[in-house]
């Protein structure tokens, strides 16, 4: 069974290539354009990993991350922040909130794919 990935970003110009990338790598995907939408989708879609932007309209990425981590059923969900906020402080905050990785924009596609693959595979199968 393929892993499921939720992409949360309000910029379609980012969402489209990333979604393509993930599908090419054999993952099934869904997208959400806001934090609220993401929270709604999670219980239905139950993703294994979320690619999460920080600057979203309304609820921001940090808040979404916090909500996910507070729910014990969602503990297994991996979270990667993908964001234009590149300051050290933001990165630190993201990791403290329980994110598994923090990738600042612009990024190379290979890096995202590798990170996703690393987080979703058992350690012994790591590439």
């Amino acid at each position: 069974m393929s892993h499921k990935i939720l992409i949360v970003d309000d910029e379609p110009n980012i969402v489209v290539p990333i979604q393509f990338l993930m599908e090419q790598n054999g993952y099934s995907t869904m997208t959400a354009a806001s934090g609220e939408e993401a929270i709604e989708i999670i219980p239905k879609f139950f993703p294994d990993l979320i690619l999460l932007d920080i600057m979203l309209p309304g609820m921001d990425g940090f808040e979404v991350c916090e909500i996910i981590r507070l729910n014990p059923d969602w503990r297994a969900i991996k979270i990667i922040f993908l964001t234009a906020k590149g300051r050290e402080a933001d990165k630190a905050r993201g990791l403290v909130l329980g994110a598994d990785a923090y990738i600042s924009k612009p990024f190379s596609n290979a890096r995202v794919v590798n990170k996703v693959r690393e987080l979703l595979s058992p350690p012994e199968n790591q590439i």
């Binding site: 910029e11 110009n13 980012i14 489209v16 290539p17 990333i18 990338l21 993908l82 234009a84 590149g86 600042s104 924009k105 612009p106 990024f107 190379s108 596609n109």
Partner: peptide
């Protein structure tokens, strides 16, 4: 710039 370049690079 980060945001725009991200889209371009990824595409």
């Amino acid at each position: 710039i980060r945001s725009s370049i991200a889209g371009v690079r990824s595409a």
